[in-house]
Nucleic acid binder design. Structure first.
Length: 594
RNA sequence: GGUCGCAUAGCUCAGCUGGAUAGAGCACCUGCCUUCUAAGCAGGCGGUCCUAGGUUCGAAUCCUAGUGCGAUCACCA
């Protein structure tokens, strides 16, 4: 049993015997650093059940706690705070329990139970991935891993927006100006090539609009009547009719884009278990609407369009089927959700999508609930804020978008420059070094994205770029590498996972143990809140605690007290394991040397 | 205008279900490498936790109102 639970149990027992009152919960937190003690038992909340002076009650409980000599060393009561100092034996016993758990902090996945689907990335196929996608991908991927760590089976997916007017724009510009060029011939990634033609289309379109406006056509009208946009719309019609030539071109260019995306995903170290294509799903949902129309969830207007009235829930009326009977975005998402539950053994879904779609998902979830799906109670929109540049929003048309591949490359380059300056990598081959630079660069990038609360929009400054000092990925990776170095230099035997109770610990030792104790509950909280940021910030605290221990304790390798040396090496060992485990949940790798 | 989100140090951010004197990093200033890895450690400087009420023994945290910023309110996706 963890120390905290043990302390809570003892406290409940004491309160029961002293006051004949059964508390179902005791408020215990870590004692402030400026106070004497390890844990603080809050007496104030008990006053609701026990009448009296909080300081006196605290003292009474404290006196009884002191009888558990193997657990409590001393107590101090300040107002309604009962500060308890535990014995070293208690900490060592707790630490030994931790050491026995190979998968400390994680629960085994129950593969028979219904799982959770996590959707992320979900790009359009008309342009390459950018920094916003990186935030999305890294967030969704990590959240999936965190859910998995709490025993939930996870199915990672993305919906690829592979059809629509935006794709046709790229296709059209390629036909006109591409001279049949392929990515191989151009020497660029497929997604980049297609993106270039998307930009080209837009430039041409803008010129046409300007020309029309010069001729006296109102701007709104010009935007609708420019030849390019009419052509694109015509192409979309052909695609929808299954025109062979159009479909073939569409397939070819999307293929180029997928090859490009695959490289970016590989570089980011993320994978998917299943894929959904909008071209397959965009007609889904009509049967669900028809059913809901019968059961009275939806209603039909005179023009034939189908709606749902959500005004009782504080929302608006929302269209779910056009008057011509075709699907809208909402129809599609309803159908896709239902389809996914049919396809996989899941009872819930997480959608990683930007916060500009908050309203859409609120409506979607509500509709699914009204349709009576049980799993609709288990839907979560993992909403995240936009990434802005100091100059404002990223705009692809103005070329201010920070490209994902460029970003990864830049991070790797920075890691290389810093590492070469430090010159600590003797003994590694060129290839190993490059692999390390990539690991550090990506670690910096991912951590930078994940340490911030998803809800908040973030400002990204390309000039200052991502930091490698302080609260960063490399800070954490560095601690891991340093521990590995200590362990190998000391000849640590990782088959002897038992610390002797015959050691005298310092505050620094105990602070590290306390920090390690927090790991399991951090993972649980991160899963409950769908927030990798909790894991990221926990790791930072752990590493700071460890670094302080490392720099303020005599060299472990030279320690003459065999028991103490063994204990400290075990502390290093377990810390390294937790760092590695926690980083893995963030999708960040840790090196053994850097 | 309606709805949703955010507001904490010069900048970027923590602060879990309310707990003691609000914490980090960056920046600026001091110290610490003849090495268990200084991408680090020890310390200094820096705050009206947006404002005003309320609930509470206790509020950055919960409630109400207001202010500012952002998003959204398409028979687009």
């Amino acid at each position: 049993m963890a120390l905290l639970e043990l302390l809570e149990k003892k406290t409940v027992e004491i309160v029961q015997s002293l006051f004949d009152i059964r508390l179902d919960h005791v408020d215990i937190s870590l004692t402030r650093k400026d106070q004497q003690g390890d844990y603080t038992i809050m007496v104030f909340p008990m006053l609701r059940h026990i009448k009296g002076n909080p300081a006196v009650i605290g003292q009474q409980i404290g006196d009884h706690l002191l009888r558990h000599e193997d657990l409590v060393a001393s107590i101090e009561v300040i107002k309604g705070f009962l500060n308890v100092t535990l014995t070293q034996e208690a900490f060592i016993a707790d630490f030994n329990t931790m050491l026995q758990q190979a998968n400390y902090g994680k629960q085994p996945v129950d593969s028979d139970a219904a799982g959770m689907m996590v959707e992320y990335s979900s790009p359009n196929t008309n342009k390459p991935l950018h920094l916003g996608h990186i935030r999305n991908i890294v967030l969704g991927y990590s959240t999936g891993l965190i859910l998995e760590a709490t025993g939930k089976k996870v199915v990672k997916t993305q919906i690829i927006n592979d059809r629509g007017i935006h794709i046709c724009k790229s296709m059209l510009a390629w036909i006109k100006h591409g001279n049949q060029i392929t990515p191989q011939q151009a020497g660029v990634k497929g997604d980049k090539l297609v993106g270039d033609y998307y930009v080209k289309f837009d430039q041409e379109y803008k010129k046409e609009v300007a020309t029309l406006v010069d001729k006296g056509v109102p701007e709104e009208q010009a935007k609708k009547e420019a030849p390019s946009i009419l052509e694109a719309q015509e192409m979309l019609r052909k695609w929808e009719q299954g025109d062979q030539e159009t479909v073939n071109l569409w397939k070819m260019m999307n293929g180029w884009v997928y090859a490009g995306f695959d490289i970016t995903y590989r570089d980011l170290g993320v994978t998917f278990d299943s894929l959904y294509y909008e071209s397959d799903t965009y007609l889904l949902g009509k049967d669900v609407i028809a059913h809901g129309l019968n059961t009275g969830v939806f209603f039909k207007k005179e023009d034939g369009s189908v709606w749902i009235d959500l005004t009782d829930d504080g929302l608006d009326e929302k269209i779910v089927l056009r008057s011509d009977g075709t699907a809208v975005y909402m129809t599609q998402d309803i159908g896709t959700a239902v389809q996914r539950v049919r396809d996989h053994h899941i009872d819930g879904m997480v959608y990683t999508v930007g916060n500009e779609q908050d309203y859409h998902f609120k409506v979607l979830f509500l509709i699914l609930k009204k349709l009576g799906y049980k799993w609709a109670d288990n839907l979560y929109h993992l909403s995240y804020g936009m990434i802005e540049l100091p100059s404002g929003k990223m705009k692809s048309r103005e070329g201010t978008v920070v490209d994902a591949d460029d970003m990864i490359q830049e991070m790797t380059d920075t890691a290389r420059a810093i590492a070469q300056e430090q010159g600590k990598l003797e003994g590694l081959s060129h290839q190993q070094k490059e692999e390390l630079y990539r690991m550090i660069g990506l670690g910096a990038l991912k951590y930078y994205m994940l340490k911030i609360d998803p809800k908040k929009s973030m400002v990204f400054n390309p000039e200052e770029s991502v930091d490698f000092q302080g609260n960063t990925g490399p800070f954490i990776q560095y601690a891991h590498a340093r521990i590995k170095s200590i362990l190998s230099k000391s000849g640590f035997d990782h088959t002897q996972l038992q610390a002797s109770s015959q050691v005298s610990l310092t505050d620094k030792d105990i602070l590290v143990i306390k920090s390690l104790q927090q790991y399991p509950e951090t993972v649980t909280a991160a899963a409950r809140n769908y927030s990798p940021a909790l894991v990221a910030n926990y790791l930072y605290d752990l590493v700071r605690e460890f670094n302080s221990f490392y720099q303020n304790v005599p060299k472990i390798v030279e320690e003459s007290d065999a028991h103490l040396k063994q204990f400290r090496l075990l502390l290093c060992y377990k810390t390294a394991l937790v760092i590695k485990s926690g980083c893995a949940l963030l999708g960040i790798e840790v090196p053994d040397q850097m």
